[in-house]
């Protein structure tokens, strides 16, 4: 008999007492990892008025929930959250800690990793247990797929975006153990979240859209970007962007699709003026039909879609819009 391994942990995240989807998705996938390691899945849930919520985490596949339920924990407070999780991890020795690639997760995960002297893989698109029972975190890079491991130190940590793993089917009959956690008394209070302001997102929600049109660096300029936005409008589609397009300032960070942005799985995806960088393409790998419009016939994007149009998008898109309108007109008259 080998020594028993520590649990797989998921740092659950709540906003206004609603647990985020990514937390359930990580628990769902955490079950698979735990099965391969012959261990349990446990969640850390910090918030206020969260007494009833552990049930949902059990239903998703959690075996145990550490619940911090305190007004001080209502919103993310980096110092307190880090302190609690560090202390708990040192006591309980988890094998793996999974964190959602959210704004909170991206700050909290490295704070915990550095405190625990361990490695952390960013924005993974897959997690598997290898033959040596080591976690392999897969990330796309340079047109290939890198496997990152943290062979010698524990826990092994990774952040994962919403939508990388499917939502688990909730099993309401599952139960588990709730372990309350206290807010530590003696911590430095050098940082306080005073307020969390959420604004109405602009445009259509990418994650729930049935059609997504995305633009890349090839848009060239703001006028070009508006042309692509025009296509999205005609198709009643959500408009997404690649990192270079966000970098150019044409699109907001929230509309970025890909490894370090959003993961979407629409019925139809149309990529315009983008080169098919893996960091972007992993974000739309779940699309049913994919189309690319790019004037460079050699662009790698044409190896990754169902239909390719080799043409200057500035010329092609207006013609395409006309054809779509023709079709939509026909539908109305029928």
């Amino acid at each position: 008999m080998g020594k028993s391994r520590g649990p797989v942990w998921v740092i659950a995240e709540q906003i206004d007492c609603r647990i985020l989807e990514v937390s359930f998705q990580l628990i769902g996938h955490g079950r698979k990892l735990a099965a391969a390691l012959d261990t349990t899945v446990e969640a850390i849930l910090l918030g206020h008025k969260m007494e009833e919520h552990p049930r949902q985490l059990f239903a998703a596949g959690g075996d145990r929930v550490y619940l911090g339920n305190d007004p001080e924990l209502a919103v993310y407070q980096p110092e307190i959250y880090t302190e609690i999780i560090e202390k708990l991890a040192k006591e309980r020795q988890p094998e793996i800690i999974l964190v959602g690639s959210t704004a909170m997760g991206r700050e909290l995960a490295p704070l915990i990793a550095a405190r625990l002297d361990t490695g952390l893989t960013a924005h993974c698109i897959d997690l598997v247990i290898d033959g040596n029972k080591v976690l392999e975190s897969r990330i796309p890079a340079y047109g290939g797929l890198l496997s990152i491991i943290c062979p010698d130190r524990r826990p092994q940590m990774a952040t994962i975006a919403t939508g990388v793993f499917p939502n688990p089917e909730p099993d309401e009959s599952r139960t588990g153990e709730i372990i309350p956690i206290e807010v530590p008394k003696k911590i430095p209070r050098r940082i306080q979240t005073l307020e969390v302001v959420r604004e109405e997102p602009e445009g259509m929600d990418l994650e729930s859209a049935t059609i997504v049109v995305a633009g890349g660096a090839g848009a060239g300029d703001p006028a070009g970007w508006r042309k692509i936005a025009g296509l999205a409008e005609v198709l009643n589609a959500a408009l997404g962007a690649t990192r270079p397009a966000v970098d150019e300032g044409w699109a907001a960070l929230e509309t970025m699709i890909g490894q370090s942005g959003k993961m979407v799985s629409p019925e139809l995806y149309i990529g315009v003026g983008l080169s098919g960088e893996l960091q972007h393409m992993v974000g739309i790998s779940g699309a049913k039909i994919m189309v690319a419009i790019n004037n460079d016939a050699k662009s790698p994007v044409f190896e990754q879609v169902d239909y390719g149009i080799v043409d200057d998008y500035r010329e092609f898109v207006p013609v395409f819009i006309e054809k779509i309108k023709e079709y939509q007109g026909k539908l109305k008259t029928c």
């Binding site: 361990t118 047109g143 290939g144 990152i148 044409f302």
Partner: peptide, 27 residues
């Protein structure tokens, strides 16, 4: 603590069709 263990190239699972013809025809 972390290191690259393997590098794999990714293969597409989609059958790619490049549409040919004049602009109008392609649209």
């Amino acid at each position: 603590p972390s290191m690259v263990s393997t590098i794999a190239s990714m293969d597409s699972r989609r059958k790619v069709e490049i549409l040919e013809g004049k602009r109008e025809e392609k649209a």
